[in-house]
């Protein structure tokens, strides 16, 4: 039993090392003074030089701003459309065309990005030819493409949340005189809100991170941050990218750790309250 526990611990340790060593090394060398990045310049390091450089780089900052706008917009669009799709698929029972909707919502989860990219671009070209909209490629086309491929994730998250809670709750509200729209806003929506929020965050991250699809459907002047990074790192390592990566990792890590701790606390509080309720007199 003991050596099996040891085996488990060591495989986990190895796996986690595999996941984190590259990230940590990237962060470490962001404080390296040397242009060679991975050769540690012991005399002049650590330094914040590359961070200063980063914040002077208007092109990267501009691209980051574009990326934030696109990510926020498309995550919001995806949250709305994905929630609707999840609701339709779990609560509307069988209807004609349900299988197609279900297929269209799960396919983007695994569809290779190059295919999505090429398909979206050809659509935009054809649309522009036929109805003159969308005019050219830019923020709008990237946002539409991102909404389309991220809404699948929101749908999956919302669907599993909806499937997990008792539909008697909605029936009870109807039974007590609430009209279907009221039931949705007063009961269903508050209950699936956590799923919608995590779906939104997921969509934001995926959009913020996407390079392939953006590359296909972007136009002049609409380079996103990942596109800028990609064109730089294709030419090799560069120290200011390390600095950028460090900042991004730290932001995400803080967010994830904080939310995990918060959820854990909520859970513990709830468990305690439930325990107290059980020991109450009936």
């Amino acid at each position: 039993m003991n050596d099996r526990g040891l085996f488990r611990k060591s495989i986990l340790g190895l796996g986690l090392a595999f996941l984190y060593v590259p990230i940590l090394s990237m962060m470490f060398f962001s404080f390296n003074n040397s242009r060679l990045v991975t050769v540690w310049d012991a005399e002049n390091s650590p330094t914040l030089r590359w961070y200063v450089r980063l914040f002077e780089n208007e092109q990267l900052l501009g691209a980051a701003w574009i990326s934030i706008k696109i990510a926020a917009l498309s995550a919001s669009g995806a949250a709305i459309l994905g929630t609707l799709a999840g609701l339709v698929l779990t609560r509307f029972g069988p209807f004609r065309g349900r299988a197609l909707l279900s297929a269209m919502t799960t396919a983007p989860l695994v569809m290779p990005e190059v295919i999505m990219g090429i398909a979206m671009l050809l659509l935009f070209v054809a649309l522009e030819q036929m109805i003159g909209w969308p005019e050219g490629r830019g923020l709008l086309t990237i946002t539409i493409a991102h909404v389309t491929f991220t809404m699948a994730y929101v749908t999956v998250v919302v669907q599993s949340r909806l499937a997990g809670f008792d539909d008697a709750l909605e029936e009870a509200a109807l039974d007590l005189g609430a009209k279907p729209a009221t039931v949705f806003f007063k009961i269903t929506l508050p209950l699936i809100m956590p799923a919608i929020v995590s779906g939104w965050l997921l969509a934001f991250t995926l959009s913020w991170d996407d390079v392939v699809i953006s590359q296909f459907v972007s136009g002049p002047g609409s380079s996103t941050l990942p596109m800028e990074i990609f064109s730089r790192v294709r030419r090799g390592v560069s120290p200011d990218i390390n600095a950028l990566a460090t900042i991004m990792v730290l932001i995400v890590a803080t967010g994830v750790v904080a939310s995990t701790i918060w959820m854990k606390r909520q859970e513990r509080k709830r468990a305690l309250e439930e325990q107290m309720a059980r020991s109450d007199t009936p």
């Binding site: 008792d166 008697a168 709750l169 029936e171 009870a172 109807l174 039974d175 007590l176 005189g177």
Partner: peptide
Amino acid sequence: PPYERPVNMMFQSYA
């Protein structure tokens, strides 16, 4: 529809 019936229900799961 259920929301217009003079009937109320107590659910098995209490809901």
